[in-house]
Every structure is written in C-alpha cells, then in structure tokens.
C-alpha cells in the first residue's frame, strides 16, 4: 500500500493533466489552472519541511560540537533571526529590506561573479586540445567568444557576423537535435510514470 497509493495518485493525476490539455472539455473546465492552484498551495507547506530539516541537521551539529559547528550556528541564527524580523515588521519592513538588500543581494551577485574566476582558472588548467575534436571545439569557442564581444569586430571586420552565423546555424542545429532527443526522453519518462513503470521516485532504483 505504501507504494501502490502514490502510484495510483500519480497515474490518476497524470491522466487528468493529459485530459486537461488535449480535450476541449478539459480546457473548458480549466483543469490545468485548477491543479496549478493546488501546486501553489502545497508549495507554501513545503517550506516548513525545509525549515525542519535545516534545524534538525544544524541543531545536531551545534549540540554535538561537530567539526565546523560555528557555521551551523550562523545558519540557525540567520534563518530564525530573519524569520522573526520578517514576522514582526513584514518582509517589506525596513530592517528586513536592509538585510536583504545589504547582505543577500550582494552575496548572491558575488557568487555569480565567481564564475568569471573559475572559468579563467579552468581555461588555463583544464581546457586541453587532447584530440582533434577538442581542437575544433576550442577554435570554434575562441571564434564565438571574441566575435560576440566588441573586440572581435575591432580586430577583424566581419568577425561578429561569422560568430553570429555560427550561433544561428551550426549551434542552433546541434542544440535542436539535443532538444528534440531530450523532449522525447521527457515524454518517455512521463509515460513510464503515468503507466506506473518508473518507480525510482518511490525509493530504490527498481522498476515494475
């Protein structure tokens, strides 16, 4: 029963979604819209699971003084501290806004900006022309990289057009192939789930 009930629910709702999209009556009843409202509601409850897990894991880290426990303490203080402030003065309140704009936003931007450093380091240490294919990949990458930035056109007139053609034609063609294949994979996965053949999401990796 522990597995049969979730499988039944999955199949019923999978078929309901198919009915809501393909059939006129399904669209008239607005089935997709209704189920999406349910998802919105259940998303709200999901946050509680996250808070419980974080509290349990990091609470134990602090309690047992595990290695690096001060980081766990920072996380708990930050999580409950911000929650308390936001509950007291709403998320749009001055302190919550100040914390968000002054701390969260720059940290998020800094994380994204790290990509520049990591790509630079990887360019030097990882990107090797070990094979003919890797050499072709590298040449194409350099043409596109410099061509899409203003410097390409400064170095050689018409470079930008070559890079743009590369993006529009061969890259698009390859990506379409991958996308079509992936979409078929999506479809096969959906079909396996609706038919109850795929059970990996219920634990273990076995099938029907």
């Amino acid at each position: 029963m522990r597995k049969e009930l979730p499988l039944l629910i999955t199949t019923v709702f999978g078929l309901l979604m198919v009915f809501g999209r393909w059939f006129w009556l399904g669209q008239l009843w607005g089935i997709e819209s209704i189920t999406d409202q349910w998802i919105i509601i259940s998303n709200g409850f999901a946050v509680a699971i996250g808070v419980v897990n974080l509290t349990q894991l990091h609470g134990r880290n602090v309690q047992r003084r595990r290695e690096h426990w001060p980081y766990s303490l920072v996380l708990i203080v930050a999580m409950y501290g911000y929650m308390a402030i936001a509950l007291y003065e709403t998320v749009e309140g001055p302190t919550a806004t100040w914390l968000y704009d002054g701390l969260f936003t720059p940290i998020g931007s800094a994380m994204f900006a790290l990509i520049a450093f990591y790509i630079t380091s990887a360019a030097y240490r990882v990107f090797r022309v070990r094979t003919r294919e890797a050499t072709v990949l590298m040449i194409c990458a350099v043409i596109t990289m410099l061509g899409m930035a203003p410097i390409g056109e400064v170095l050689i007139s018409g470079w930008h057009s070559v890079a743009e053609w590369g993006m529009d034609v061969p890259v698009s063609a390859a990506f379409r192939g991958i996308t079509i294949g992936a979409r078929l994979g999506f479809m096969a996965t959906a079909m396996r789930i609706i038919l109850g053949l795929e059970r990996a999401h219920l634990g273990g990796y076995g099938a029907s």
Binding site: I178, G181, A182, L184, G185, F186, Y205, A207
Partner: peptide, 12 residues
C-alpha cells in the same frame, strides 16, 4: 541529452 533518460533502464 537523452542519454540521461535511459539511465533507469540501463542500470536496472
């Protein structure tokens, strides 16, 4: 791409 979707069949 789609190689990743063959995983459950390939592994099991």
């Amino acid at each position: 791409g789609e190689e990743m979707f063959a995983a459950s069949a390939y592994i099991s």
